[in-house]
Nucleic acid binder design. Structure first.
Lengths: 195, 195
DNA sequence: TTGGTATTAGTACTTACTGATAAAAATAGG
DNA sequence: CCTATTTTTATCAGTAAGTACTAATACCAA
């Protein structure tokens, strides 16, 4: 029994090690855990951990998609429901890297980004930019919360759309915004937006 | 001369191909460009492009750091000048991945993020969150522009700070925001922010 | 002492290369 | 048109970091 526990401990150490530094070869792992390379291979097999190259590739791949979805994706958050020109709903999980280290309170611009990109998505036009926004953060938002944003198009006047977005966690409304979204022609004229 | 042009064209195609799909082996590249694998190797050598594995690894590595710097840094933009409690200036270069593909117009939340994080940086308090924001996007912003945001604390009432941020490109004002920033006590109370 | 798990050793094979060297093909210059 | 040079292709040996498999050994407990 003693060895079996040893094994489990070693496999846990292996997982931890790879979590901290993913670019480690079997050989280095073997040296680190003072076992043979073959043992490392068996452990990886049992734990379903792919080889270094596969791991590296996976990271590179989903790093790209992550970058797209967080930073430069067309939409921040996950679109749940959409009635073009009328309303839309998106959800976003608040993760570690969205909050201030000290307070673990979410940075405002993430919540804004979710709301803003949802408001843009709802507009039924090929090209739209935000013209004006009125925003109220009602309650500090913390790590782990799931934010549900609902957007509604309140009215339309010419190429201006008035969109309200309300964001709730599971308990209450935490954020609210009014946007004026402006749609542009294909070759964007220098539209000065007057409120 | 004809071959030399051919060669340059091919090498450009090679670069483009790798830009679009970076996880391609020399063999696949050779098939794609209908030359031998050796030619691909020579081309990569001349262009200073590393082998597939190196490329993959590099992407995996700097994807992690990129995520941090774009999405979750304490400050969006580069802080140029700061008078705590009074004013601050930050600049931000508008890059490819901040704009909509179709229009090459900047997504609103980047400009907002710059302004918002600058407004927070100016406040002379350990913990501060955005309470309310009034925002106006005056002119569409394009790739390559350098945005200079200036923040000024207009007044303070209790734990509420009123901060104005004006953002200019090299020619004119493109964005303007009024923030009400609220400072919190160390153990954040459930402060309901009433406008 | 026997059985069973855990570990180690060893071999053959794979992918995606590097590096070097040589031959063949294409092209330019006179 | 022929030669010189450039460009491309071919060939071989070697590398890292594996997979997949088999055989041997160690250990521990009943």
């Amino acid at each position: 029994m003693a060895t079996r526990i040893q094994k489990q401990v070693r496999q846990q150490m292996l997982k931890d090690k790879l979590h901290v530094s993913p670019f480690v070869t079997d050989e280095e792992l073997a040296a680190f855990l003072t076992v043979s390379v073959q043992t490392i291979r068996l452990d990886r097999l049992e734990l379903g951990i792919p080889e270094l190259r596969q791991r590296t590739k996976q990271m590179a791949e989903n790093a790209q998609t992550k970058l797209k979805s967080i930073g430069s994706g067309e939409l921040v958050g996950e679109l749940i429901d959409l009635e073009l020109g009328r309303s839309g709903i998106s959800i976003m999980q608040v993760t570690q890297d969205m909050v201030f280290e000290k307070t673990r309170v979410a940075r405002g611009h993430y919540v804004f980004s979710q709301a803003n990109s949802l408001a843009l998505a709802v507009i039924d036009a090929p090209i739209a930019v935000t013209g004006v926004a009125n925003i109220k953060y009602k309650i500090p938002i913390h790590v782990g919360e799931k934010l549900v944003a609902k957007a509604e198009v309140m009215k339309q006047r010419g190429n201006k759309y008035f969109v309200w977005v309300k964001t709730r966690n599971d308990k209450q409304e935490v954020f609210r915004a009014k946007f004026i979204i402006v749609t542009l022609a294909e070759h964007d004229e220098p539209i000065g937006i007057k409120q």
